[in-house]
Design a protein around this nucleic acid. Structure first.
Lengths: 253, 253
DNA sequence: TCTGGCGTTGGGTAATACCGAATGATTAAT
DNA sequence: ATTAATCATTCGGTATTACCCAACGCCAGA
């Protein structure tokens, strides 16, 4: 997990513990110790430390992640200019389309959901704000990567690869680069069930004043409602327009 | 800052660094080192580690908190049963009142905003989800504390005190306990500009099946609109009803 | 070219993260 | 009531490392 050589090594095990809490769902000390392969006492050391720092909480059934992470997360988000500006626009996009509208960015080679707004008809969906997914499996991620240099993309692919999530995932480098070209031509990206079966998304990139891509907005919904015409005409127009509004507002903020 | 004796001491300095990033707004290595009183090299060690772990990002102007915190925060929130159930109810409360509606809980002696929904007329407000504030300065915090044992409250006050935020803050133990009694009688708590001048809030506690208090819902708005009648009749009723709906839904989930 | 401020690197050492083993605490089973 | 089993917790030794100092390299601006 934390195989890389970290300068402060204990931080690696500490976040192995945090990840274990996340993955195991209300685990006990012993559970965690076994999961990450350390003695109980070590896990205990880290868990008490995390608890003292308000980063974990010992509940009746086991440990859970502390609300202090919410504070840091909220702060991280609130301090991104693009988030402040984009939030109302994304919200409106959700209202207008009735589907889920999202704001996302790329960080450390992963696509991060910064904000999600739920439209009237939106189906339940597995994403939540803060969630991180492989870039190549989302319309947002592809919209962003398409506007980065080839070296930039290669570095990410080199580190994370192109893992297959389901049968529609693009796992071939060349196919991906061809898709990027189409995305640049059309000005928007799509995801046709490439991460979640039956879900289709449309995304448009957001640029800063130097034409560097900052983030992306997207709309996602079930294939039953996201028929071809809507996916290729109405929604791209709306999503691109939303991205444009965000860009303009960014310039004057 | 991290004066307590931690089992994993380096975690203390690590989160001193994280807090420094938060407080200083895009600081450099040197800024951070000075702020927390360690050599540059130490700050650098922690910052590179944080960056390797995706917990911090080196931007053009300096460091900022990484989006991985968003992931943990989102996860912490999504895994609280009360949050899932309460979200739609709080959203509706915001729509109906036109003001800000909030969901909050107490953790480690601080009030945590879990969710905030913005009504039509809502003014800009300094809170954001994940934010933590002294319990005694919010209606939500008081609604929760009023239904805890005296020892529980004493422990919190002993650790955090009753810091004065503005001229309306309750800083006297006895005054606070008297207010708690009133809160228990009426079934709701108020905040009359005790944290932010000119802001008034109404909050109601949410109980679990054992009548232990879990969280609280609140509505907050500018004093100009939150006149006495609304503050003491209409809103308490709405907030209490919302809390009740959440309680019922919690039982069957 | 020089100077000042920055981030970065490397290595020594005092401090500690990690571990094994023993001890409590709790619950279930006999 | 007694035992057994499983959990969290405590404690102290030691190999490891977090921390620091000092030196270096880099870039602007003078």
């Amino acid at each position: 997990m934390s195989s890389e050589e970290l300068r402060v090594k204990s931080a690696g095990t500490m976040f192995d513990v945090v990840d274990a809490i996340k993955e195991l769902d209300e685990p006990t000390v012993t559970n965690i110790a076994e999961h990450i392969g350390v003695p109980k006492s070590t896990a205990h050391d880290h868990l008490t430390t995390l608890t003292d720092l308000d980063l974990a909480v010992a509940d009746a059934d086991g440990y859970r992640i502390g609300a202090r992470f919410l504070e840091y997360g909220g702060y991280a988000r609130e301090n991104m200019p693009v988030f402040r500006v984009a939030r109302p626009v994304v919200k409106r996009l959700a209202t207008e389309t009735g589907e889920h509208a999202n704001l996302g960015m790329e960080e450390h080679g992963l696509a991060v959901f910064l904000y999600k707004s739920k439209g009237e008809d939106a189906v339940t969906i597995d994403t939540h704000s803060g969630m991180r997914v492989p870039v190549h499996t989302t319309a947002m991620g592809k919209a962003i990567l398409a506007h980065h240099s080839r070296e930039y993309v290669e570095a990410i692919v080199g580190e994370h690869g192109l893992p297959r999530i389901n049968e529609n995932t693009i796992t071939d480098r060349e196919t991906l680069y061809e898709e990027f070209e189409r995305i640049r031509e059309r000005g928007y990206a799509t995801d046709d069930g490439e991460r979640v079966d039956g879900m289709r998304c449309v995304a448009a990139p957001i640029f800063d004043e130097n034409d560097d891509v900052l983030a992306a907005v997207s709309v996602s919904g079930p294939a039953s409602r996201m028929h071809d015409d809507r996916l290729k005409n109405d929604l791209p127009q709306r999503v691109k327009s939303a991205a444009n509004v965000i860009e303009v507002n960014l310039k004057y903020s």
